[in-house]
Design a protein around this nucleic acid. Structure first.
Lengths: 239, 239
DNA sequence: ACAAAAGTGTTCAGGTTACACCCATGA
DNA sequence: TCATGGGTGTAACCTGAACACTTTTGT
């Protein structure tokens, strides 16, 4: 029994003798260019690993939550607020950051690839990479990206997210391409549009987008109110 | 532009000036007694909140990962190793712990309610509570428990977990009751056993359990190899 | 012989999949 | 007039849901 009692000590020790760690948020930012999914990463202009590709990240401040920190980091890079964001598994190997132990809480976000501040991106030497061409990133950032992709696919296959990656008005075909890009599969256009229309979260507009074909294709908007109702009802959608 | 550059500072500052936080793991331990789902909590024997009900927890040590810390905490309370464990959302409100800022990474585990070290439980003044009768816990621990229940239900509804909560040999009826307890719904025994048998992850034994009826009911075991294969294939199961 | 739980099969409805042709238009 | 992408319906199949009776055996 003594063994357990010994191991137990740290959990009942007064707070002050315990280890305190740096806590970072890392931002996995996905965008869509109507063809494929892309990831936004930066070229570090500070040590360690100056000049290497990296996720955008930042340390959690004393007075903010992790969610606030993640929003701050995303805002710093893109100028965007109120973006879809989801936390994934924490990365906590003691030696993952060579400078000092840093635990990373990653958040992935979905943004419209057209709607961000390009000056800020330039300032951070940030670039978009197709998912299949993401270079070697610092530390364990490639693992983090892979975990985020996995989580995004999983979520997308059971809940209608992904609208955040499109412009406000979009065609059925764009939406289908988005799902195909996220899930990395091909879908039948008849079945896809039937399914999506059944969800009753889109509004069909009278306008057409004439850029993709001679005939033009109808534009849709996404009915935020209905969408939120459904998600709140714990609604599950299977593609 | 200056605003962004100012906000940006913390993310590019050298490590040393940044805030370091206490990082805790909290353990949400679920057990099943053949009737209902229960939660294991402890009566704190240290300040703050001495005497209050609380999740078992502990601070992450300098040389361990969060997963190791979670295993250590669980081991300290139950004497168990190699238990199913899953991380849920991090809780990081700056004032959630009144003594000092502590970020909590909660892990829930599923254990067989018969197979743990009862001496250790007594030592920690720990008790099992039915989910619907969990008392007020310290800090935001009730929120953490609710998040864990939600996650457990979600997981259970799409993947065959939950076997961890049963003894090695169990009856179809016990398994059904477990699912009913986790999902808080009633299931049809014909459809349930058909579905489970289709999954092809159980082995039917020749033995019967005679304790529950005159006729006796067949015992099953869970085929770990097949189960692991299925889960690795990203297999989704909908009850 | 009866009470108590175990065990099993069929039918029906709804959803998912596979599949092919016509439409509108600009060039 | 033709080439390009847009738009739609139907039949076969599969899965999930609802539902009731027989079996075993201890008392």
């Amino acid at each position: 029994m003594d063994k357990e009692f010994f191991l137990d000590r740290p959990t009942i020790t007064a707070y002050k003798h315990n280890f305190r760690t740096l806590l970072a948020v890392d931002s996995i930012i996905f965008g869509f260019d109507n063809e494929e999914l892309k990831l936004l990463i930066i070229k570090r202009d500070y040590e360690p690993e100056l000049g290497s590709w990296s996720l955008m990240g930042g340390f959690m401040l004393e007075e903010e939550t992790l969610e606030e920190a993640a929003n701050r980091v995303l805002y710093n890079l893109t100028g965007l607020h109120d973006v879809y964001m989801e936390q994934i598994q924490v990365f906590s190997k003691p030696d993952r950051d060579p400078v000092e132990r840093t635990v990373s809480v990653p958040f992935y976000s979905l943004i419209n690839i057209e709607e961000h501040d390009k000056e800020l991106l330039k300032h951070h030497s940030a670039s978009w990479f197709p998912l299949k061409k993401v270079p070697k990133l610092i530390f364990d950032h490639n693992d983090i990206v892979n975990a985020a992709i996995k989580q995004l696919r999983y979520k997308t296959s059971i809940q209608p997210i992904g609208f955040e990656l499109l412009p406000e008005k979009f065609t059925m075909r764009q939406l289908q391409k988005l799902y195909e890009a996220i899930l990395d599969i091909e879908l039948d256009k008849r079945n896809f549009s039937k399914k999506i229309r059944q969800l009753d979260i889109l509004v069909k507009l009278d306008e057409k987008d004439m850029s993709s074909s001679k005939k033009g294709s109808f534009l849709y908007m996404f009915d935020k109110r209905k969408y939120k109702e459904k998600v709140a009802d714990g609604f599950i959608f299977k593609l």
